[in-house]
Nucleic acid binder design. Structure first.
Length: 131
DNA sequence: ACTGGGGCTAACC
DNA sequence: GGGTTAGCCCCAG
């Protein structure tokens, strides 16, 4: 499992570990950096499978809305995530949202911010969702 | 093999 | 600004 190569989860963990302290990123970004394309959900899945004493800073991964996906569930993990982020200096606004433009992290950029890598993912066929 | 859901996201209203 | 719709594809039962 740890050494299993066929798991895309490992790639996700590898990316998440690279997230510097006091910085956050989105599931979609992690997925892309992990070479998973747009499987943001997979990132969430992979993170949910992490054990308690993991070295992976899963708390630094939030959703594209700048919020904690676990927050709505009010789960213990969600609380842990909030506390960890707060301790790292990542603060959310009154609405409980984190400014991705400020704390957003990307591998390529050496600077603090500068927009996200690419808004998110590119909808290859947005024509399909036209209604 | 099939079905249901998911720690998501972008577009639409 | 928030709620809904559609799409992605993987995981668990």
């Amino acid at each position: 499992m740890v050494a299993a190569a066929g798991g895309s989860h490992e790639r996700i963990y590898a990316i998440v570990r690279k997230i510097p302290r006091g910085r956050v990123t989105t599931y979609g970004t992690v997925a892309r950096l992990a070479g998973l394309g747009r499987h943001a959900r997979l990132v969430g899945y992979a993170l949910s499978a992490l054990p308690d004493g993991t070295s992976v800073p899963w708390h630094r991964v939030i959703n594209a809305q700048g919020r904690l996906s676990l927050d709505r569930a009010a789960s213990s993990a969600g609380i842990t995530q909030m506390m960890r982020l707060a301790r790292e200096g990542v603060r959310a606004d009154a609405a409980g949202r984190i400014a991705l433009t400020k704390y957003g992290w990307r591998v390529d950029a050496t600077g603090p911010d500068r927009r996200t890598v690419r808004t998110a993912d590119r909808p290859r066929e947005r024509t399909k969702r036209q209604r």
